[in-house]
Design a protein around this nucleic acid. Structure first.
Lengths: 183, 183
DNA sequence: TCACACATGTAACACGTTACATGATTTG
DNA sequence: CAAATCATGTAACGTGTTACATGTGTGA
């Protein structure tokens, strides 16, 4: 049950509607917690019922109204308490790795293609993260940023995402080379 | 729905009981697909009903009998078809990263401790994977192994696991350093 | 005019987690 | 003598996924 806390943590960035949260999850939170829009809408309803967030309706012209949510004190307290608890090990679930485990019983060309796709996706994510990092730093050196920034949490997870994608690129490249050696 | 295929892929290593599969998932499969014993027992029942695996009871003395499962042709066919499908992006779910996203609203010493624990766990996993790799290679050079081995899938995912843990170690170390700079 | 972005939601189902239950044997 | 290992299972609950539904505004 950390979807709850991931939502609270995402709201530390500022108030958001379900739709906006879904985007936020898509671009940055998904490095460490993946969730679909439907999960978010459901969780937002529960969090509101439990008094961890507060929603207010923002009326818009031409667009559907939106419900925008803000953390309450109870929400912040809950998040604080959560972060002091011991962490569970990372749960990874990766389709492609299952296929590669079964590599020798597969259509090996199909696997190679999927590796190339994964490699390209990782490169694109890395480019995105580099851009986000530049935006966060806003021209400052890293150590200046770390000493002066209001919040460094999002920077630290971003660095994690970058390293993860770099590792992904390295792994895809290595496997493609090893497959060439095999053939 | 790739638990199903992860189980089939794990059975490529040879027949296993639910209990043995759980161990197999624990030591190696968990790099790319995590599952609890209860999930495995349930999935094995379904796979048997669907004719993808076949179970036979092995009687033992002093221990409870066990049901050992083997892939059927239908199971192999299903796995083969699955591997040709496009893959979904990796789903990561990591408690600790949620906490680090919220870092600035946390008990920061507690986070530091959790980072140290995670670092130690990653080091231990890396040691384990290095050992497993040595066992697989059995003294051969990598390129010899790749050309002559029956199955290279498990080797490729093992390499993935090793790289993942190396990256984990690097990330934990980096974050701990950045936190020192902040303080 | 077709697709995409905005914005939310329901319903059904599949999957994952946790707690509990049982009971013999081996290892420290 | 206690704890861990072997071995399986039920039940309840919580989370995650998929499909569908609705309707306006904007840009190619």
């Amino acid at each position: 049950m950390a979807l709850r806390q991931a939502v609270l943590a995402a709201l530390l960035e500022g108030e958001a509607s379900g739709y906006q949260l879904a985007k936020r999850f898509d671009v940055s939170v998904s490095n460490f917690w993946s969730a679909t829009p439907q999960q978010l809408y459901r969780e937002l309803d529960r969090l509101e019922q439990d008094g961890m967030i507060e929603g207010r309706v923002v009326e818009q012209q031409g667009r559907p109204n939106k419900r925008v949510f803000t953390l309450t004190t109870a929400g912040r307290d809950h998040l604080h308490a959560f972060t002091a608890q011991p962490s569970k090990p990372t749960a990874i679930r990766d389709d492609l790795l299952v296929k590669i485990q079964a590599f020798d019983s597969t259509d090996q060309d199909a696997i190679r293609k999927q590796l190339l796709i994964r490699l390209e996706q990782a490169r694109q994510k890395l480019t995105l993260y580099d851009k986000l990092r530049d935006d966060l730093l806003a021209g400052q050196a890293e150590d200046t940023y770390l000493r002066t920034a209001d919040r460094i949490g999002p920077y630290l997870t971003l660095i994690g995402g970058r390293m993860f994608e770099q590792q992904n690129i390295a792994w895809c490249t290595t496997v493609l080379e090893l497959l060439d050696q095999r053939a």
